[in-house]
Structure formats: structure tokens, C-alpha cells
Design a protein around this nucleic acid. Structure first.
Lengths: 116, 116
DNA sequence: CTGTATCCAGTAGGATACTG
DNA sequence: CAGTATCCTACTGGATACAG
């Protein structure tokens, strides 16, 4: 591990990459849900309020593409598909918690609450 | 400070609130820029690559609305307007750094890079 | 059960021109 | 200098119906 200067450009690029991974209306909710245990497609569908199948599929495929979620298909009839966090997926709950903690500390004394 | 249970709902809401504060194509870049010192409108305009005035104004107004940036108008001719991070704005560089550090650790061994 | 396929509305963001 | 105003395109996400 070599010490070196970190450019502002790298800070921006890295930060934006993470925000890109978390992008999408349902992404965070699905990640937190899977952080409490792996689920089948329909379990996620019913546990996440109001999401459509289209968006659920899109969200899960993005997470899989980015290596945060592992998709496992069991070749049965009817089909069974399980989704679980990867190690990478687990690791990103760190920054996620960081954001929650900031919110818990700084959101109540706020001019504008971005109401839940 | 009372210990209590934190619901998954609160985690999601808090996290999404922070992501909401950071939302927008140019938000992070402007925050990092102001973290290196306050600037005038035109200074930000020229230091941030390729942003339009419309988006710069919109981004700054959002940040001001959310209490992350302080806007100060000096009633001179020609007008001078300075933007600086608030204490709240400074504090959010914490989560921002958290995301950068995650990216520095986990982005290179990735299946998909979200290329800078 | 686990998805696709279509259609649609709303919005983010870019390009350009104009103003106190 | 520090913005507005207007027009335009592309993409996100919702609703609904269909399929292996």
C-alpha cells in the first residue's frame, strides 16, 4: 500500500460511482431487505410496498450486474429464484449505515426535511 | 440519549433522505468544490466542467434549500454572489468520504466498473 | 412463480437566447 | 456578473396485459 495524493477528480469519481450503484427508487429498500436475509422474487415483491414487477426485476438485475446481489435459479416447476447479498453487497451496507447515521444526527434540526 | 430499536423503515427513510440531498448530476462535484473554499457563481461555473448556468443555478438553489450551502449576495454593481458550505454542508462530507473510501477499496476488483 | 412487453406521463438535463 | 426563459430530448418509473 503506497501513500499518494488523492485528486479531487478521484474523490468525485469514486463518490459518484457509489451513488450510481445506489441509484434507482427501490435500490436501497431492496438492499436493506436482503441484508436481513435472502429472499425469493415473490417474497421481495410482497415485502417491498407498492413496487411493480417491472421495477423489481430491473432493480434486481442492476444490483446483480453491479455485483451486489447473487441471483440463483433452481430449475424446478414452478420456478424458484433466490436473491442474496454478495460480499460486495454486504460491504456497501457500511456507507449505507453512514448515511443513515448522518440523517439521524442532522435531519431533525433541519430547515427542510425531505419528508419520509 | 435514549437507547431504542431502529426500524428498517427508519434506516431506509434516513438513507434515502441523504441520497435525496446528494441527488442531481452536479451536486457532489459542487459540494467537493466548495469544500475546498467558498466561491463566486462564475468561479464555480468555470471550475466545474461543462455545466450550464441553468443547472448550476438549480444545483446551488437545491443545496441552499437543503441547508448545505449558504448564499450571500453583496449589493454591488456588478453583483457579487458567494457560495459557501454551511456547518451542515461540512458535516455531509463525512458520508461522502465514506463512499469514496468504499469505492477505492471495492471498485477495482469489480465485475462492472461504472467507469469514471 | 417469475418474469416480459407495451404504452404513457412526468421530469432531469442540455442548448440557446435574453436580462437587470 | 449572475442569473432567467424557452424549447427540446431522453430516460425513469407507473399501469396493465401477457407468457413460459
Amino acid at each position: 500500500m503506497v501513500e499518494r495524493e488523492i485528486s479531487e477528480f478521484e474523490m468525485i469519481a469514486g463518490t459518484r460511482a457509489v451513488l450510481g450503484l445506489l441509484d434507482g427508487k427501490w435500490t436501497v429498500e431492496v438492499l436493506y431487505l436482503l441484508a436481513s436475509g435472502k429472499r425469493r422474487y415473490s417474497e421481495i415483491y410482497y415485502e417491498v410496498g407498492e413496487i411493480s414487477k417491472k421495477m423489481l426485476t430491473r432493480t434486481l438485475r442492476q444490483l446483480e450486474l453491479h455485483g451486489l446481489v447473487q441471483r440463483t435459479v433452481y430449475p424446478e416447476v414452478p420456478p424458484r429464484v433466490e436473491y442474496a447479498l454478495t460480499q460486495r453487497g454486504w460491504s456497501i451496507t457500511g456507507p449505507l449505515m453512514g448515511m443513515y447515521e448522518w440523517a439521524a444526527e442532522h435531519l431533525d434540526d433541519a430547515p427542510e426535511q425531505l419528508a419520509a
